[in-house]
Amino acid sequence: MTDTRPVRDSEQLDWEKLAAYLRRALNLDGEMRVSQFPGGHSNLTYDLAFGDFELVLRRPPFGPVPPRAHDMAREYRVLAAVHPHFPLAPQPYLLCEDASVIGSVFYVMERRRGIVVRNEESFDEALRRNISANMIDTLAQLHAIDVAAHGLDALGKPAGFVARQIRGWTERWHGSKTSDVPDMEWLARWLEERIPPDPPRATLVHGDFKLDNVMLASDDPSRLVGVFDWEMSAIGDPLVDLGILLCYWVHAPMSDVTRNPGWFTRDEILARYPGDVSNVALYEVFAVFKLAVVIQQIYARFARGQTDDPRFAQMGERVVDLARIAKTLTEAA
């Protein structure tokens, strides 16, 4: 079964120019075959093949993007720094900052193969439990990396990280909203009033750690073989990652997969994670708020005619639902 599809008409690139560039830069031969990964809702991801050699291209979406968002150069540099110490992060091959090649900055990285769980799976309960446990253990391994010893502290400024996150995503909400959503304004104020202190130890933060951003081995799906989408990674508070995982897993899943028997519950996730999770409820609220802003940014691109992807047409309603979910979660925080 293939994990790619033909490229959407509205997301075609100058393939001839790109192929010529990659042949020169990476010493490749032959014709270039192109397909597109259908998952994801923001950055565009393509599969490129020269004979048996495959690589993955990542570029920003078409049209104007929010400041500091979709930073492909930063994502490339994060992967280059992290891959040697966390091999589940793909190895990047090349960064191109010459927008004349395909119209934007882009990078290419290694292609990995395996299973990405999105809308359905047919695992038994025991395998679901094993995958759940290995997901949490992988996140803990990422957070256990000695940032200073490996020179990764250059990837971010941990002091005030959560405060910058809350204020930054509030700014993105105001910059992308297409209608008033009172619950979002209420949540922004609620979060601003409850900014937590910096953690005792800052860690590498993935920023979007969830089930469909990991790849499972085809021959043993309990084993992870890849962790993708490092665009929002930073050095900061590890509970941000845990909140995001719980957001997608428990509170606002994009599908019903993790509601099937065997997948860990919220309590089981928190029990497995080796750290102080006493204040995690605040981070869950922030994660759902952040997801609402991400969805709003995507919907705004659709509403402004910057994409014709039909998946985005109803996302405005999703923002309202997420704001309601996040507001309900504040009662536990």
Rank of each mutant, 00 (worst) to 15 (best):
Thr2Pro: 12
Val7Cys: 04
Asp9Ala: 12
Gln12Ile: 10
Tyr21Met: 08
Gly30Lys: 02
Glu31Ser: 12
Ser42Gln: 08
Phe50Trp: 00
Asp52Ala: 14
Phe53Trp: 15
Phe53Met: 15
Glu54Ile: 08
Leu55Glu: 06
Pro61Ile: 01
Met72Gln: 06
Tyr76Cys: 13
Val82Trp: 01
His83Glu: 04
Pro84Thr: 04
His85Thr: 12
Leu88Met: 03
Ala89Arg: 09
Pro92Trp: 02
Leu94Asn: 05
Cys96Tyr: 03
Asp98Arg: 07
Ala99Met: 10
Ser100Trp: 10
Met109Cys: 08
Glu110Val: 05
Arg111Phe: 08
Arg111Ser: 10
Arg112Cys: 09
Arg113Leu: 14
Ser122His: 12
Phe123Glu: 00
Ala126Asn: 06
Leu127Lys: 07
Leu127Arg: 12
Ile136Tyr: 02
Leu139Val: 06
Ala140Val: 11
Ile145Cys: 05
His150Val: 02
Asp153His: 12
Pro158Ser: 05
Pro158Trp: 01
Val162Pro: 07
Ala163His: 13
Gly168Ser: 00
Thr170Gln: 04
His174Tyr: 05
His174Thr: 07
Glu185Val: 01
Ala188Arg: 00
Ala188Asp: 04
Arg189Lys: 13
Trp190Phe: 05
Glu193Asp: 14
Glu193Met: 14
Pro197Ser: 13
Asp198Phe: 03
Asp198Ala: 13
Leu204Glu: 01
Asp212Lys: 01
Asp212Cys: 00
Met215Tyr: 04
Phe228Gln: 13
Trp230Asn: 08
Met232Lys: 00
Ala234Asp: 13
Gly236Pro: 03
Leu239His: 10
Leu242Tyr: 08
Tyr248Pro: 00
Ser255Ala: 10
Thr258Asp: 03
Trp263Val: 02
Phe264Ile: 00
Asp267Leu: 14
Val280Glu: 09
Val280His: 14
Leu282Tyr: 09
Glu284Asp: 00
Phe289Ala: 07
Lys290Leu: 08
Val294Gly: 09
Gln296Thr: 09
Gln297Met: 12
Ala300Cys: 13
Arg304Tyr: 07
Gln306Met: 08
Asp308Trp: 06
Arg311Tyr: 14
Ala313Asn: 14
Met315Val: 05
Met315Lys: 08
Met315Leu: 15
Glu317Val: 11
Arg318Asp: 07
Arg318Val: 01
Val320Asn: 15
Lys327Glu: 06
Ala332Lys: 13
Ala332Ile: 07
Ala333Tyr: 04
